[in-house]
Each structure stands twice: as C-alpha cells, then as structure tokens.
Design a protein around this nucleic acid. Structure first.
Lengths: 121, 121
DNA sequence: CCGTTAGTTCCGAAGTTCCGAACTATGGGC
DNA sequence: GCCCATAGTTCGGAACTTCGGAACTAACGG
C-alpha cells in the first residue's frame, strides 16, 4: 500500500490550513485528534455530534487534514493512527490554530467547546 | 439597486471567515482594505501582486468577504466603499484574524507582508 | 486459507468557482 | 433632459470540487 504523504512543516501553506479547517466536520475531527493526543483509528472519530460521517468521506477528510500539514498518520497494522502536528504548526504560524479553535469553540452549537480547554491562551 | 447585505456580528460564523480567507487573493484584498482603513472602490483593490483580477471575480470576492462579515460595503454614488469590520470580528473571535493575517504574512511570497504591521501582537 | 475489521479507491450526481459578455446604476457635461 | 463614461452586478457555461455508496485491498486472528 502506498505510503502516506506528509508535507514538511516549511511547505505547509496557510491557505491549505484555512481550507482544511473551514469545514466544521473537519475542524471537529482535528479537535478530537488534538485532544486525544493520539487517536487510534479514523473510526474513533467517525461521529461528529449526532451525525455519522460515511467511511469514504471520513477517509477524505483525514487526507485533507494530513496534506494540509495538520496531522500525521501512521499505519499500525489494520488501522491508521493520527496525531496532531500542533506544536510544529504553532511554531510556524503562531496563534493561528488557537485563534481558529477558539473561534469554533465560542460559536454556540459547535462540537469544539471541549477543545478550547486544550488551547492555552 | 438591491441594498447590500451584511450579517449582524453575532451571526458571523467561523467557517465563513475561514472559507473567505482560505483564498489567497481574497486574503490579500481583505488585507488591503484593512490597511487602508477605508478603500474607495473595489477597483482600488483590483490587482493582487502582479495578477489582475477580472471585474466579475472581484465583485464576487468582495461579496464573499462581505457575507462572511469581514467587511462592510457602502454605495457612494457610482462606487462602493469597503471597510473592514476588524474590531467587531476581533471582539467576537479574539486572535482569529491576527493569527490568519500573520500566517499569510510570514509565508514567503505572500502579498500580505505589509498587513502584518497593522496587526499588533 | 477464510472471515472480519479498517481504510482506500472509484465514480456519478450535485454543488461551487471562475471569468467573459451583457447588463444596470450613478453622476458629469453639455 | 440626454448621452456618455465609469463602477459594479448578473448571467451562463466550462472546469473543478465535494459527497457518499459500492467495490476493492491490506492486515491480522483463528
């Protein structure tokens, strides 16, 4: 199976990050991965709120997050483990992720309320 | 002519802001409007770097920024004056715009280097 | 091996974006 | 008042993106 592609941190583009996180499901998935430190399996993340994301869409969301440089995915046997590249991204674009996560968190009805606690301000 | 629609600040959604600014031309337009305080005419903003944006695309970009809640547009005779809603947006989503503008500014080759000076850190 | 679980790929339908051309609105000159 | 120029908007089609079901592949357990 083809190895998973990850951009080097210096190749990460702000527009890719914004595009990736402009989708609330994707932002929620990213927030979950971030909070967990290391979420085992994409499927651990398959539900956003009360809505279940179909496998193929989920696979695609994860790919978008990965190629934007937001997460790192490793195959572990039959599953893929995802963890956030928060520290690297924060070093490259200080305040960007915190601003975004907090914006979603302060937005009523969002699934990201919990994530904002992870983001020191 | 139909009046221009502006969302109330409490109706502004983070995903709309991210989507609007995920496009580098739109981010550059927003940055220009922000720096100028009040840019007269859309056309004052018609070139991004060395690339000229066609009128119809520009009109659309301005509309996206307006409906995301990032700018306010007023018709003044034959032209439209745009100014940024920075202060309102900053109050609602603290750190969001600064994070985004700085991310673009620190990205080599971006047209937003100048804008970051406007953003206190 | 075969079954099961986890994820990826394929592909068609639906939606979005881009931009040229045609249009509309406003103000200035005569 | 009428015409022109200027500034933006709308329309429409081609190109691109997104979504999700079905079929596929990969790895492990028995």
């Amino acid at each position: 199976m083809r190895p998973l592609f990850h951009p080097a941190i210096e190749d990460v583009r702000p527009e890719a990050i914004l595009h990736a996180l402009a989708d609330p499901s994707r932002a929620a998935i990213f927030a979950k991965i971030m909070q967990a430190g290391c979420v085992e399996a994409c499927s651990a993340v398959a539900a956003v709120g009360d809505r279940v994301i179909p496998k193929s869409s989920l696979s695609n969301h994860i790919k978008v997050l990965r190629e934007a440089g937001l997460i790192r995915s490793e195959r572990h046997g039959v599953e893929v483990r995802n963890h956030s590249r928060w520290i690297e991204v924060e070093a490259r674009f200080p305040g960007l992720l915190a601003g975004i996560i907090n914006a979603y968190a302060s937005d009523v009805g969002s699934d990201l309320r919990a994530a904002s606690k992870t983001v020191a301000r």
